[in-house]
Design a protein around this nucleic acid. Structure first.
Lengths: 265, 265
DNA sequence: AAGCTTTGTGGTTAATCGCACATCTATGTA
DNA sequence: TACATAGATGTGCGATTAACCACAAAGCTT
């Protein structure tokens, strides 16, 4: 039942075309089943399985038992795999950071996987607060909470991070004033805080400007590393939440800058 | 992992709490696995399975082999169930509407399930365009496309619709000018277009003001119904994309207002 | 026609599902 | 306090389904 009824069905496209359709299907529904697709395309399940393998190797989908799901907020597959092991650490950091928010606070939350964990705990605990963020997953996570009001920044959408950046976002942040901000980062050294993703550093700096108290949330694995863009000096922050005690040099620098160190147990 | 470290772990809450967490997890990741959740919560897989059964009976998630997936794009379960049968119609409308976008166009896309379908086709076809939207799922869908640049509106986040509303959004839209806008609606009658969700009508009106050509995308089942808020008169629109030919009275009104009717086959 | 790629088939292993029944826990009642 | 009860959870089992591997068949390219 090779349906080359129309002239456009050059066989060489068959595989590619089918995979395109799988991706389309995945855009329409979050989850597709192997058996279902096999039947729809009139091929064997083994073929679909091979398609899944190929597509998942490219990071275009993530496999599950019996089917496949859209690639989780499309980060690079390597990035995702590399950091999956640290989810638990991030959860601990996020929980500790969420505990800093007092009922009635207004807080800005930067985009990032660690701050997302924090947002989840904020929603889970139902802390009553107003949250301004430039991250779509964070907005959706905190939005679940009945106690929270969420304000989203405008700007240019960055698909790889599911966040917005750019001048519109900066200007929007600058029009506000909040009690606290929670900032993630790619690196922390005695010289300060740095970021790798293009466009994010400016957002973080804007949040630092417009919040009374700044908290850095950072995976312990990033202590001692540096990203390409400078975010701010240590003394911009009131505290840093991490999962690992900083080494003596780092600790000394933090002490000198009067930064409180909170190690999530 | 959140266990009952704190005193609030009354066992009677355990079940409800766990299910809340499952739903929260599902908001963050499109697919969760039974085994994974069982381990995380420290319960047996059978318990998670029963949770899935209960939640899926309520329409809050859809089951899959080995796990569960978000119920298609967080609407009220009833609403969702009622309209699930019309997904195919929406797909057709969305595809037809997406075809109206010319390469290089700048388009505003209103939030809504039909416009979301349109956004998915836009992404699938890779049409090169700039998209401004107030809907988070639409931003994420169109963001998939390499050809598209996505601009997100600021504003107050509305969790039930995963979109932003409010004065910030309106003002932001008013600062732009786009080639086209695609508007969804709750109702269409000879008197005009109307909307039910509070706050959305003002967004739609702003988009209508700031776009050269307006297209209404609307499920045929909504022809002849009225929402509580007025969006605009028929002559605000250049065309309406639907899946059912309007009745004679409606058709006459559309003709009189010079609205092109596109019925998606 | 040769060679490569893609796809299908068969059989085995592993995982999940769904059910029945036992256990545990919180709560209500005497 | 002791007991009874209902709801929630865990365990064991057979049936179902998917994953995986290797090889054969079919299709396209040259």
């Amino acid at each position: 039942m090779l349906d080359q009824a129309n002239k456009t069905s050059r066989p060489r496209l068959r595989k590619a075309e089918r995979r395109e359709r799988i991706l389309l299907e995945l855009k329409l529904y979050p989850h597709v089943r192997i058996a279902e697709l096999a039947e729809r395309f009139g091929v064997s399940t083994e073929t679909i399985r091979r398609d899944f393998d190929a597509l998942s190797k490219k990071g275009l989908l993530s496999r599950a038992h019996g089917g496949a799901t859209v690639a989780s907020h499309q980060q690079y597959p390597d990035f995702d795999a590399r950091n999956q092991a640290r989810v638990e650490e991030r959860e601990r950091i996020g929980r500790r950071a969420a505990a800093l928010v007092q009922p009635g606070d207004s807080v800005m939350v930067d985009s990032g996987s660690t701050t997302l964990q924090m947002a989840r705990f904020l929603a889970y605990e139902g802390t009553q607060c107003t949250v301004l963020t430039n991250s779509l997953p964070i907005a959706m996570a905190v939005g679940q909470s009945a106690g929270a009001q969420v304000i989203l920044c405008p700007g240019d959408f960055l698909p790889s991070e599911a966040a917005v950046v750019g001048p519109d976002a900066i200007e929007f942040i600058d029009r506000h004033h909040f009690d606290r901000c929670f900032i993630g980062a790619s690196g922390l050294t005695p010289e300060g805080v740095s970021e790798t993703v293009r466009g994010f550093a400016a957002i973080k700096r804007a949040m630092l400007r417009r919040a009374d108290r700044a908290h850095l949330v950072i995976d312990g694995a990033k202590l001692g590393t540096t990203g390409m863009a400078h975010v701010g000096a240590l003394d911009s922050f009131a505290s840093v939440v991490t999962d690992r005690r900083p080494d003596p040099a780092m600790q000394a620098a933090l002490n000198k800058a009067s930064v409180e160190v909170l190690v999530a147990a």
